[in-house]
């Protein structure tokens, strides 16, 4: 185990964390403003990836694909909000879970219908191909660094949007008192649609970025969705700051756990078993961390003050 290898894994963890943040930010925003739990958020991630792969295959340009992923995911989000989600705001969480679970079935099977069961592939754009030399001498893919940078830019933009713009003021007002901002003349229904579409666009963007690293296939959103749930539970549901911290924590712990735990167990047990125990424990590690955090702070690290 060398320093360079550890650094590489740390960067991988950061990259995972940044992608998780894009998912978790949308989820937590939607929950914070509308009080809605959206299981279908992973489907919007998938929509973004499929849109990007399809448009990139047509036009040969990853960048057009990326724009398409934002547009398609936002449009899909807006349509779903208008047709279905809107009717769920006044319902209990059980109904929300079920309706959005139904949406997952519809999205997944619908996508399989349109695109077939075979995964699509998305190439990394030429501009971002290649590798960068890290201190310590190893090469690290430029594209993964670009993902980290893109995530950081989006996180900053989101911060500016929420703290500095009129829309952001309305979103924050919606989080603290829905009836009041309705009474003050803000069209709350449109605001909800906009917030949902914004969350969807973030998910779609994440899907498109990750699509170039993995294959684009039906069901790709579900593992990410569940990790994003862990993130917002750790961070405190409704808190963007919590989502950012939680996402980086989960990304780094998960990646480093998979890398380090088998090596730690080698010190105690025979290597064949160390891989098995370490691997099994590493796959459970973030859930254990989540349980520990909740045992101390049941509402997450940054619980929203008003809830």
């Amino acid at each position: 185990m060398t320093f360079a290898l550890a650094l590489e894994q740390l960067l991988n963890g950061l990259q995972l964390g940044v992608m998780l943040f894009l998912m978790a930010a949308g989820l937590t925003l939607i929950f914070g403003v509308m009080g809605l739990i959206n299981l279908a958020h992973g489907s919007l991630y998938m929509v973004g990836a499929f849109a990007c792969a399809t448009v990139a295959a047509w036009t040969g340009s990853f960048w057009l694909g990326l724009i398409a992923s934002l547009a398609c995911a936002a449009a899909a989000g807006a349509i779903v909000e208008l047709l279905v989600i809107r009717r769920l705001y006044d319902r209990d969480h059980l109904d929300q879970v079920l309706a959005t679970f139904a949406l997952i079935l519809i999205f997944s099977e619908g996508t399989r219908w349109m695109f077939g069961s075979f995964p699509l592939y998305l190439d990394i754009p030429p501009l971002l191909q290649g590798a960068v030399a890290l201190p310590g001498g190893t090469q690290y893919p430029l594209y993964r660094l670009a993902i980290i940078a893109a995530g950081a830019v989006v996180a900053f933009a989101l911060y500016l949007l929420i703290s500095r713009t009129r829309l952001g003021i309305r979103i924050r007002a919606g989080e603290s008192d829905r009836e009041m901002i309705g009474a003050l003349g803000v069209d709350i229904r449109t605001l909800y649609t906009v917030v949902f579409a914004l969350g969807a666009a973030l998910a779609g963007f994440a899907g498109a970025m990750v699509g170039a690293l993995q294959s684009v296939q039906v069901g790709m959103g579900e593992p990410v969705l569940i990790l994003a749930f862990v993130v917002i539970v750790i961070g405190g549901i409704g808190s963007i700051k919590g989502a950012l911290l939680g996402a980086l924590l989960v990304g780094v712990i998960d990646t480093m756990g998979r890398f380090l735990l088998p090596k730690v167990f080698v010190l105690f047990v025979p290597p064949s078993q160390a891989g098995m125990i370490g691997g099994a424990l590493a796959s459970m590690l973030i859930y254990i961390v989540m349980a520990l955090i909740l045992a101390v702070k049941p509402r997450g690290l940054f619980p929203p003050a008003h809830a």
Partner: peptide, 22 residues
């Protein structure tokens, strides 16, 4: 509330990943 829904989901996933990787 929502926390309970997500935490039970997360624990079930933990058992799931354990079964997959053991």
């Amino acid at each position: 509330g929502v926390y309970f829904i997500m935490i039970t989901l997360a624990f079930a996933q933990m058992v799931y990943y354990f079964a997959v990787s053991w």
